[in-house]
Simulated scan of single mutants.
Amino acid sequence: MSVTMSSTKTRAALRVSARVSGELLLVLVMTAVALWLLGRMWSVVWPLVVGLLLTTLTWPLTRFLRRRGWPPALAASTVTVLFLLVAGGAVALIAVPVASQSGELADGVVEGIQRLREWASGPPLNIGDDQITGAFDSATARVQDSVGSMVTTVVTGVSTVVNGVVTAVLAVFLMFFMLKDGPRFLPWLARQLPGRLATDVPTVAARGWDTLGEFVRSQAYVGLLDAVLIGLGLWIVGVPLVLPLAVLTFVSAFVPIVGALFAGFVAVLIALVSNGLTDALIVLAIIVVVQQLEGNVFQPMIQSRGLGLHAAVVLLAVTLGGSLAGIVGSLLAVPAAALIAVVWNYVREQLVEPGEEPEVQTSPSPVGTPS
């Protein structure tokens, strides 16, 4: 039985496909242009993003004080000072105990190197002192040959630190002004926009603000969980500086991937130089288990509930953000995905006819969102 295709329907289908393809291409071009502009203005956008995230973290206390009759400027100033004191206290809680035991840690490092040298000289490696000395001499020669590149690296590192300090200072000032004048922003924005935009944009902005608050709180919950579990493991093993290491773990949870690696490296290093290789391996195993649970179980579950995103979407967003923009991309991937979901949900609400309910699939589906 032969089937003939309708030329009219075929041309209509091709026209629709061509129109949809053209529209998608236009959307992709506009997205690329927007990302290019964002990159050109990143020196301003990045402090603004950090300040906005800090504001979501400190706004609940500011709102509490303002509801108690505090003037906006006084409430914002008080919360900003308290934030700086807490941040400085966290740094002191990490730095002071480490500095007080720096001598012991240095002796432990020297002793660890000596033990490693003795182990290398025995079986099965049987590396003699002459070979070790030759290796050190070769390493020294390579360092001397690469002084220029090392200077360039140091200058780049100093520039990065300076940019980080400038970003932090700008973010704190922006946080203060957002805490002080934030509630007046949406009414002002509504007065500046014409027509329906005066309603749509402030509504989406308010929902996005709530979403960012959920993101910061979920990160704090994850960091607290990591700090408690890893700190408990360090305390059981008998590693010194448990409290500073727990605080460092909590703070580093706000920086995906690198933060966890850095905190874990510090904990393993301290365990190695103070307790020996066996305890260091135990600490490494504890950190790996906790980080795997956090990255694959706790964080997707907490963020998916707080942000209204499926756990798989959270994992894919972090992976895509890291591949596109490194550490910053990993940090901003989840809130960016949540904001996109906010915009999409609002647009979908506006497109649905009054009284029309979307059809709900009742059959099991592996990609369906949980109820």
Rank of each mutant, 00 (worst) to 15 (best):
P366R: 00
R68M: 13
P256T: 06
G122F: 02
L28S: 11
V328G: 08
G238H: 12
I270M: 06
V204N: 04
T78K: 01
L26Y: 09
F177N: 03
E353I: 15
R142T: 04
L229I: 13
V155G: 11
V201A: 08
P256S: 14
P335K: 05
M150V: 11
A333I: 00
V297R: 03
L193I: 03
W70F: 12
I127S: 03
L24D: 12
T153C: 03
L351S: 11
P72G: 14
L57W: 11
G223K: 00
V343I: 13
V151Y: 05
P183G: 00
L35G: 02
P244R: 11
V98Q: 07
V81H: 04
T80G: 04
E111K: 03
G148Y: 06
R67Q: 15
P244S: 04
V288C: 07
V367G: 06
V27R: 13
V318D: 05
V201L: 12
L241W: 05
G157R: 04
W59F: 15
T8N: 08
V367Q: 02
V158E: 05
A325G: 06
M41Q: 13
F265Q: 10
V109I: 10
V81A: 08
E353T: 14
I257P: 10
G88S: 04
Y221S: 12
V360P: 05
I127L: 01
Q131Y: 01
A336G: 12
A206N: 08
R66M: 15
V318K: 12
A280E: 11
L281Q: 08
G164T: 02
Q291F: 04
V273G: 04
A317T: 08
V247G: 05
I94F: 06
A106R: 10
V334S: 05
R184S: 13
E214F: 09
G306V: 06
V20R: 15
A260H: 02
A139W: 12
L35T: 06
V266S: 06
A18W: 09
W235A: 15
D130K: 02
L261A: 11
T10S: 04
L320A: 14
M1E: 11
F250Y: 14
M30L: 12
S21P: 03
V44D: 01
V314T: 10
S365D: 15
S7L: 08
